[in-house]
Design a binder for these strands. Structure first.
Lengths: 198, 198
DNA sequence: CGCTTATTTGATCTTCGTCAACTTATGTGG
DNA sequence: CCACATAAGTTGACGAAGATCAAATAAGCG
């Protein structure tokens, strides 16, 4: 799949499920006024789709070029029912995803723009492969390439694009991060960033 | 269980899982600054807890007096593994819960106070048994008793208590709802309310 | 190089949070 | 039954965070 391609549409009957092999996708929905809210991201090894015959409550779109392993949903359903171990794994994953989603709710409901951005950068650093080789002593990648536009970051965090831009500029001005290009981020003061993210 | 009692604490190892027979409970977490965010509500027939050996990522507290059916987690885990049909049901439930939670994210991230309150009232009307018998022609209950304080509503919607109060007052002033007592709500103009909730 | 799109920046305006006072309910003991 | 205490909720004044509107600037890309 190529970046920007839509895998599923909100409201469609789910006809397929898929596993992410490589790349990043977004799950999102819209308000009636046309604002988008990203509900989650799918990274390699993540499972996507809604088994057992429901309507997709969100759309899925590739943010980067992706390799995904697609199954026909009814085939998958049948197979899953016959293989309890698969269902068990799927249940564990879903529970984990539910936890992650709930944690995200805390961001959306109770954090201010600065905290949202700081948390987002820290999580991104952990989840995304480093673009260079700036591995710190503690072995966490401090430099990475964002697979998202500013608009998409805004949609994830429930902010406006201008607010995202201003907060990033501020963090750069204060020396906590650097932005060599628009898509690259270098964390220069992880402690201070964690302090903001709280 | 009595209203206000805590069933699980955030960060505890999960030692039990439970089914709600009667009553309403809240799942919630806190920011480091002490603001609470309610992550979900559990209604009768809902399943609570985190099978398969993780730490509870949220606390659970009874909002009303509750009857719940509690299982030892490790017993439950073993039983579930031996009964694929149970795991299957649990998986379906968890997927549904995930969908509901994601929908909630849209509220938190993209709706203003008025929209949040309107949506909340409409959903409450559908989920809560009517306190009287004001069933409308379309058979949806338009009168119900809130099991929540204003503070708890605020924690659900990611608002401050004063904002909740003001929005409710405004809806009442405009004739969309009535508030006979502090805990009772009557929807007087469902269409207008749906219009706001969008 | 010129066109298109993404991003940054600046100037306001709105919404909602904060602080503080006041009102209404609920309960308790005299 | 009534003062009083306590907790819950409402209201008002004000300010700050973030949205909105409007340009300016910087990347990409043909």
């Amino acid at each position: 799949m190529v970046a920007g391609e839509q895998l599923m549409w909100e409201g469609d009957d789910t006809v397929l499920v898929a596993n992410v092999i490589e790349g990043i996708l977004k799950l999102s929905t819209n308000t009636s006024e046309g604002k988008e809210q990203i509900l989650g991201l799918a990274f390699p090894a993540d499972f996507m789709g809604r088994p057992f015959g429901k309507t997709a409550p969100f759309g899925v779109e590739a943010l980067t070029d992706c390799h995904i392993c697609v199954f026909d949903r009814s085939d998958f359903d049948r197979f899953a029912r016959e293989h309890p171990r698969l269902e068990h794994k799927l249940l564990e994953r879903t529970l984990t995803e539910l936890d992650r989603t709930r944690k995200w709710m805390l961001f959306l409901g109770r954090m201010n723009a600065e905290q949202k951005i700081a948390s987002f950068l820290l999580e991104s650093a952990d989840r995304l492969a480093p673009s260079g080789c700036n591995i710190d002593f503690d072995r966490r990648p401090n430099s990475f390439k964002l697979p998202l536009t500013r608009q998409q970051i805004a949609d994830i965090l429930g902010l406006m694009i201008e607010t995202v831009s201003r907060q990033l500029t501020k963090l750069k001005r204060d020396g906590l991060i650097d932005l060599p290009t628009r898509r690259e981020v270098v964390i220069q003061d992880r402690v201070a960033l964690e302090d903001i993210a709280a």
